[in-house]
Amino acid sequence: MGLFDFLKKGEEKPVQKPVAQPAAKPVAPAAPVAAQPAAATQPAFDTYTVKSGDSLSKIAKNFYGDASQWHKIHQANLDKIKDPNLIDVGWTLKIPKS
C-alpha cells in the first residue's frame, strides 16, 4: 500500500466490522475501605524554625530553590505572619511541599 493509494477511486476495500466479544462476567464490588487515620498519610507541610538572619525569601530558596516562592510560605502561615518583612526568631513555620 503506497502513500497515494487513497487517491485511486474504485478500489475501495470494505471496512471489516469488529468481531463481537463475549460479555465479561460481572465482578463483585470490593468491600468498602475504612478511612485511613490522618497520621498514616504524609503531611502536606514541612516545618522550619526561624533562625537569626532568616527571611521568607531565604527560607524559600532553601526549600524550593527559588527565593521568589516566599509567598507560598507566607500564605501557609497567615495566622503568624502579619507582615512578610517581619518574622521572629523561634517561630515554627509550615512550609508547603511543592
Rank of each mutant, 00 (worst) to 15 (best):
Val50Cys: 05
Pro29Gln: 12
Tyr64Cys: 13
Val50Arg: 10
Pro43Met: 03
Val50Asp: 08
Trp70Arg: 08
Leu56Trp: 05
Ala34Met: 01
Ala30Arg: 03
Lys61Phe: 01
Lys58Val: 07
Asn62Asp: 13
Gly53Asp: 12
Ala39Val: 09
Phe63Asn: 14
Ala40Tyr: 00
Val33Ile: 05
Lys25Thr: 02
Lys61Thr: 09
Lys51Asn: 13
Ser68His: 06
Lys72Cys: 01
Phe45Glu: 14
Ser52Pro: 05
Asp66Glu: 14
Ala30Val: 02
Ala40His: 03
Leu56Ser: 10
Gln36Lys: 09
Ala67Phe: 03
Leu56Pro: 08
Pro26Asn: 03
Asp66Lys: 13
Thr47Lys: 06
Ala31Pro: 01
Tyr48Arg: 12
Ser68Pro: 04
Leu56Gly: 12
Ala67Asn: 13
Ser52Asn: 12
Lys25Gly: 00
Thr47Gly: 02
Ala60Met: 09
Val27Arg: 06
Ala38Trp: 00
Lys58Tyr: 01
Ser55Arg: 12
Trp70Gly: 09
Ala60Ile: 07
Pro37Asn: 12
Leu56Arg: 10
Tyr48Asp: 11
Ala31Gln: 07
Lys58Ile: 07
Gln69Met: 10
Leu56Ile: 08
Leu56Gln: 09
Thr49Glu: 12
Pro37Ser: 13
Ala38Arg: 12
Trp70Cys: 09
Phe63Asp: 15
Tyr48Pro: 11
Ala28Trp: 00
Ser55Asp: 11
Gly53Ser: 14
Lys72Phe: 00
Lys61Met: 11
His71Met: 10
Ala38Glu: 13
Ala31Glu: 11
Lys51Val: 09
Lys61Trp: 03
Val50Ile: 07
Trp70Tyr: 14
Gln36Met: 02
Asp54Ala: 05
Lys58Cys: 04
Asn62Glu: 15
Ser68Asp: 15
Ser68Cys: 03
Ala39Ile: 08
Ala40Thr: 11
Val33Lys: 09
Ile59Phe: 04
Ala31Lys: 12
Lys72Asp: 09
Ser52Ala: 12
Tyr64Gln: 14
Pro37Lys: 09
Ser57Pro: 05
Ser55Tyr: 02
Ser55Met: 06
Ala30Asp: 04
Phe63Lys: 15
Ala40Trp: 00
His71Trp: 05
